[in-house]
Design a binder for these strands. Sequence first.
DNA 1: TCAAAAGTGTTGTCGCTACACCCATGT
DNA 2: ACATGGGTGTAGCGACAACACTTTTGA
Lengths: 227, 227
Amino acid sequence: MAERTEIDNFSIDCVIFGFDKGELKALFIKRNTEPDFGQMALPGGFVYLDEDLDAAPMRRLYDLTGLTNIYMKQVGTFGKLDRYPTRRVITVVYYALVRVSDYSMKVGPDASELHWISVNNVPKLAFDHRELFDAALAKLQEQVHIDPILLKLLPKEFSLSDLQEVYEALTLESFDKRNFRKRMLNLGVFHDTGRKQKNVSHRAARLYRFDKKAYKKMLKRGQMFAI
Amino acid sequence: MAERTEIDNFSIDCVIFGFDKGELKALFIKRNTEPDFGQMALPGGFVYLDEDLDAAPMRRLYDLTGLTNIYMKQVGTFGKLDRYPTRRVITVVYYALVRVSDYSMKVGPDASELHWISVNNVPKLAFDHRELFDAALAKLQEQVHIDPILLKLLPKEFSLSDLQEVYEALTLESFDKRNFRKRMLNLGVFHDTGRKQKNVSHRAARLYRFDKKAYKKMLKRGQMFAI
DNA sequence: TCAAAAGTGTTGTCGCTACACCCATGT
DNA sequence: ACATGGGTGTAGCGACAACACTTTTGA
């Protein structure tokens, strides 16, 4: 790839969420340059002059993880005068949802010092990244109620308990198992694959898939998806 | 004011909503320079190098209308390569909600050729402004359901019919009068001022105010505001 | 046989919808 | 007196919350 010009007052930052072992986590990178050397930070970078804005966070995510075709959403744009220590930089924040099961930590210069950290346990971050992270988490938590995005965090096939676990981690609520299952199945957008879990040391759960077509039909009928 | 440096690849655009005569309207400006001379456009401008990002749309709104202390919210940031014809410009879109009753069209070079246009009747717009406008309207329509922002469109004192009219214009639904009033009054956030409309050629309606304190309490109790 | 999670029904309550008529005011 | 919008109550239904035990599987 030829050298490309960066727009040097204009960056993107990514909050990459994943769900693993019952916890919502995000991916942070340990800074290896000044300023704020050694601190944890959101993965980010500048936008190229010949690159669509939305393409920049996807490129960054690919460089870090090798993943393509990932759900990303703009959180907001942050432009206080003093947000970056050395000069004026405006940044656009995106969040991404990845299936940790698909994820393989890429080996490369960019990917050194990557860490999945539980969102309940985020350390001090560089610059104003704590504010950016909080905004992304708040946005995600808001979206969860009206959009089945959290399926992007689960494997293609999942049990109803998996689903409940993710909802509970994102909404910070806890649901009654029977009521939760009734509600989910009544939506008519989860399709029983007939398969079951393997190698679990307890009764194996049925595995479901999200049925996108049924979901679109539901929307067309004017029905809401609400948790 | 001394000359200030503009960040010339970086702009803001404002979608300024108002509610008047039963219709949701937005404020557009007729362009008097190339490119797209003579077309309607969203009011916008560049961000100064020594100005917080969020301050830029407020400054622009003040220059146009003389209004300060207006509710503004970021809609999103648009950065496709070809969105602006002559060079690469990334723009942040905000929407504002103004009480048309407070508004006085300012006389000044910036304010010439300002037009309130019903959102159902928007003409062809310059550049990609139609896309920006649609995004702002969609965001507003989404927020209406979960936040009592539409009160920013009404005078301080309003009748329940005024309120219903705004809800209907924003949600594109129509509500049963009795049910609507019960729902609103049950929320406990509208306070009867004891005053009534004047100079109406029919029975005068009671006037209500939004009770911010009661609203905050409601949120603390974990109750939702949902329409 | 024990541990661990899967799976399953009923009942009461509350909020929503549907629906039609009289009232106050200005012209 | 008429036109215009303001203001009101009830009954039925459906969605949600609360609640505890049996089943399956591997160790």
